[in-house]
């Protein structure tokens, strides 16, 4: 067995140091070592999107990243995005529109949505569907998810327009 490796990184704006096996995925590290269980594991091959987290501001698969690779980077999980209030409007839109059922895909879907919404302009429904192409949801049929992201984009656009210059 190879020896565990020490890593230091920032998770949800808090510094974390840990010893990890080099084969340990970031998703399993977050879930089982740090107990941040909002990140889910659905396929371990980058096909389902349940494990998406943000690394240095970009959405990535927690299953296709090793914990050791994340050494020195800044990770945001659903717990962090929630508690910072950054996606409160998105979460509210999902809640009102019932854009989730079992909720297993939801943290990953919210990651994709948040990255998309940080781009300029209001995405079309087709662009939203395209952005979600790596997020598998077996329950909703996707339409409510698309609706909620569209609603949030419109609300944010209006909100920004109303901000004093």
């Amino acid at each position: 067995m190879t020896r565990p490796i020490a890593i230091m990184l920032t998770i949800n704006a808090e510094p974390v140091t840990a010893m990890v096996e080099s084969r340990l995925s970031l998703a399993d590290f977050l879930r089982h070592q740090l107990r941040l269980t909002g990140t889910h594991v659905g396929c371990e091959t980058g096909s389902c999107g349940a494990c998406l987290v943000m690394q240095d501001g970009r959405v990535i698969h927690g299953c296709l990243t090793l914990a050791v690779q994340a050494d020195g980077s800044a990770i945001q999980t659903i717990e962090g995005l929630s508690e910072s209030g950054a996606i409160a409007d998105l979460q509210a839109a999902f809640h009102e529109r019932n854009a989730l059922q079992c909720g297993f895909c939801t943290p990953g879907v919210l990651m994709t949505a948040q990255e998309l919404l940080q781009l300029e302009g209001v995405p079309s429904r087709e662009e939203i569907r395209d952005a979600l192409s790596g997020n598998y949801c077996r329950c909703t049929g996707y339409q409510a998810i698309v609706d909620s992201i569209e609603t949030t984009a419109q609300r944010r656009a209006v909100g920004e327009a109303e901000q004093p210059a």
Partner: peptide, 17 residues
């Protein structure tokens, strides 16, 4: 809306794993 959905939206679901 579903009261229990807020928990899931915050990543605070409790699945068996």
């Amino acid at each position: 809306p579903r009261p229990n959905a807020k928990r899931l939206l915050a990543g605070r679901g409790r699945f068996v794993d």
